[in-house]
Design a protein around this nucleic acid. Structure first.
Lengths: 213, 213
DNA sequence: CCTGATTCAGGATATATTTCCCGATTAAGG
DNA sequence: CCTTAATCGGGAAATATATCCTGAATCAGG
């Protein structure tokens, strides 16, 4: 009954489908076929069908999938339909930018506290949040039952912030610091420097990648 | 003579190695073995060895790889050692945040112009750049021979910005808008909404992913 | 100089993911 | 009601990626 092997790449494509389906929905479209999605998004239609399969939504031959049901199913599958409390470590650089965009709610996250180690930042107001010392993180995270942590600190502070989070019961960490953090088994971590997608572009540009496959 | 099939995942891991090697280098370490890297980064050592192979660097049995040579080889392979001019479309949200971090230079990029469609933003100063109308993008991109474009605009403007970039000779686009853009063959595009890594975390958190494999 | 332990290099195997394919189902039109 | 064309569902084949394994090279120590 639990989901079978869930391919990583599928997980990364689901949000793409979700965004597009929401746009279709706004235009009043209520059913969509994999072939149409394939044309719109430039992905193989079989792949799309298999990806959508994990959400449990069934389509009708000759018609396609019901758009509203698909949107709901993907959001539910990703857990974006349930609010999860989160703590943010890092009040400089990317952190404030993320807060300012006020997009977290769309992804099921509610920030309950912002923390930093730099004394000059403590007490500052960041889009409505008061920046507090890192040492306060565990207490606040625990009392709010925060299960998600986001790290946008410089490299040398990332690991200790992760440790604090884990100690406070955080079970999933989105680490945007330019260094991987290690966590105990049972805690999920996405070590993903912001700029890495540039690698692919730059590299391909450099070597002109002859085959346009 | 040209590089063989270059696995995508390898491309994404190279920057991780690069960061770590730079840290090792700062600590005065001049050789490192794949087994050591494996312990540090939590990746399989065979995988690391195969990844590093694409850079052409050779290691010594019983010793490992020369750190400085490896750093240079990866930077060269990724094209981060050569400055490429780039245009930024989007003066709100992520765009300014990226500019403010002043990290682009590390990745071989020099921003030569910032553009937006919102009239209220035109003329504003953004970390030393004057925001100009999107219509000016092609001229400036062309005269600076910008080969890279970065899009941080809202969804409804992303495609037109991409088109402008392509028309001006941009050959690689890093699209951070929440919608994929389509480009002609021969142009590389990374459609990557900033928040997508959250999908993996949230989803796994939600379904508790039993197997800790 | 010889022995043992470590690591590279690269082929072989296993696993994961994508692509292909075909039978079954549905809607539209004659 | 029957035919046609589009699409789903899911298994099979192909491809891509990761892991395992072996032999050769190198260094340290006796």
């Amino acid at each position: 009954m639990a989901g079978k092997a869930l391919p990583e790449p599928t997980l990364h494509r689901l949000p793409v489908y979700l965004q597009h389906l929401k746009r279709l929905s706004l235009r009043g479209i209520v059913v969509v076929s994999c072939s149409t999605l394939s044309r719109d998004l430039g992905l193989d239609s079989s792949q799309i069908r298999k990806d959508l399969e994990v959400t449990g939504t069934v389509g009708k031959p000759k018609v396609g999938f019901p758009v509203p049901a698909l949107i709901g199913a993907i959001e539910h599958f990703l857990g974006w339909d349930k609010v999860k409390n989160a703590v943010l470590a890092g009040a400089e650089g990317l952190g404030p930018a993320l807060l300012g965009l006020k997009e977290f709610a769309h992804y099921g996250l509610r920030i309950v506290g912002v923390f930093d180690a730099d004394e000059r930042l403590i007490g500052a107001d960041l889009h409505g949040f008061e920046v507090r010392p890192l040492g306060f993180l565990p207490g606040i995270a625990r009392s709010a039952s925060a299960r998600v942590g986001i790290i946008t600190l410089p490299a040398h502070l990332a690991q200790s912030a992760a440790d604090l989070m884990v100690s406070a019961g955080v079970r999933a960490i989105w680490n945007l610091a330019p260094i991987p953090v290690r966590v105990p088994a049972g805690v999920f971590v996405e070590n993903r420097d912001f700029y890495f997608p540039l690698a692919a572009l730059s590299c391909r540009l450099e070597r002109q990648e002859v085959e346009a496959k």
